[in-house]
């Protein structure tokens, strides 16, 4: 799991250690809109850069909707092939959310085309709290984190999706709204704050129960 994160330059490992995992890449300092322009003008290095950077995230995202690995791979290929050709007039300000959304559409389109819509799962978006690599070592901290971990299971798939997109994928509310086909980012903010509130309540109530048994 950890090794996957290394491809995302904004990932935890970077933030914590301050290490640059990527060799210095000219595209790193460019905005998404600029990289997008470069790809559209036929720059294969730019294409390879975003491919390397987002492949694992895209694949993991695809796995939430179907277990068919080959299908996910085919769909990712088609999404990258279509960049700059479909929607050729639109500029893209967030490549990652654009890729997520396109992949989701492509998976649906394919399954529908092949008459296999039944294979489409409701996005599962199981969340896990990485306690092992956490810096918190004290036992009572670990216990609290374990409660959060079990609380995550009580959330709805939509809430889990928002949490993963926000905390793991690093998408903004606007971008999450785009990926999930929600009109307004406020709706995303509400989903999120309700999820956090639930986690808070669950952790508190579990603690109370523990106290009352003594």
């Amino acid at each position: 799991m950890k090794s996957l994160k290394l491809t995302d330059q904004r990932s935890k490992s970077d933030a914590e250690t301050g290490l640059k995992i990527h060799p210095i890449n000219p595209f790193q300092s460019l905005t998404d809109a600029d990289i997008w322009k470069a790809i559209k003008s036929g720059d294969q290095k730019a294409l390879s850069y975003i491919y390397e950077r987002h492949l694992n995230d895209l694949f993991r995202f695809g796995c939430q909707f179907t277990q068919n690995r080959d299908l996910i791979k085919d769909c990712i290929q088609d999404v990258f092939i279509a960049i700059g050709y479909k929607d050729s007039n639109s500029s893209v300000s967030s490549i990652k959310s654009y890729l997520f959304k396109s992949l989701y559409r492509e998976i649906i389109r394919r399954l529908k085309r092949d008459g296999r819509s039944k294979e489409l799962q409701e996005g599962s978006f199981e969340v896990e709290l990485d306690i092992e690599s956490s810096m918190v070592l004290k036992d009572h901290h670990r216990e609290k984190l374990a409660k959060v971990q079990s609380g995550l299971k009580a959330l709805s798939p939509k809430q889990r999706q928002v949490i993963l997109h926000y905390y793991y994928d690093g998408l903004t509310y606007d971008e999450i709204a785009q990926v999930m086909g929600i009109q307004h980012k406020n709706t995303v903010a509400k989903l999120m704050s309700r999820a956090i509130e639930m986690l808070k309540q669950i952790t508190i109530s579990v603690i109370l129960v523990l106290f009352s048994t003594f």
Binding site: M1, E16, R60, C63, Q77, F80, E126, E128, L129
Partner: peptide, 28 residues
């Protein structure tokens, strides 16, 4: 900090190096 930075996908599948290279070739 542990909560905010520890949230991750439970599923862990990723394309292998070989798959990744093959896919990129298909894309090009």
């Amino acid at each position: 900090r542990s909560i905010a930075s520890g949230m991750q996908y439970a599923s862990d599948d990723a394309p292998s190096e070989k798959e990744s290279i093959e896919m990129f070739e298909t894309i090009v």
